[in-house]
Amino acid sequence: MLQGIEYKALGYEDAQRWIDNSRGRLVTKTANEPADQLLATDPLDWLRSTMGELD
């Protein structure tokens, strides 16, 4: 799912189907919570944070 999110951020709109399919396969709360966090976050925020750009 993360890779699909990154592809979509790069402009590949067809990646949304991949994201939706991946998200739909998650059935436990343990899987759903991090997935929801991924979907609510810019896919490159982890890199920006690591480099001190989000302080």
Rank of each mutant, 00 (worst) to 15 (best):
D14W: 06
D45T: 11
E53Y: 05
E6Y: 04
D14H: 08
A9M: 04
S49F: 05
M1E: 05
E53M: 03
D42F: 00
L26C: 11
L26K: 15
W46N: 01
R48N: 15
T30M: 05
M1D: 10
T41L: 01
T28I: 03
Q3D: 14
V27Q: 14
V27K: 14
T41W: 03
T50D: 09
D36V: 05
N21W: 02
A9I: 00
L44V: 05
G11M: 02
Q37R: 14
V27T: 15
I5W: 02
V27E: 14
D20M: 00
W18A: 09
G24V: 04
K29E: 15
P43M: 00
A31W: 08
Q16E: 12
R25Y: 12
L2K: 01
T28E: 10
D55E: 11
A35W: 09
R17S: 11
Q16L: 05
A31L: 03
G4R: 01
L10H: 13
Q3V: 06
R48P: 08
W46V: 00
L54A: 03
E13R: 02
T28D: 14
E13G: 00
E6I: 12
S49E: 13
D36E: 13
T41G: 08
I5Y: 06
Y12W: 13
R23S: 14
T28R: 10
N32P: 11
E6K: 14
Y12I: 01
A9Q: 09
A40I: 00
D20Y: 03
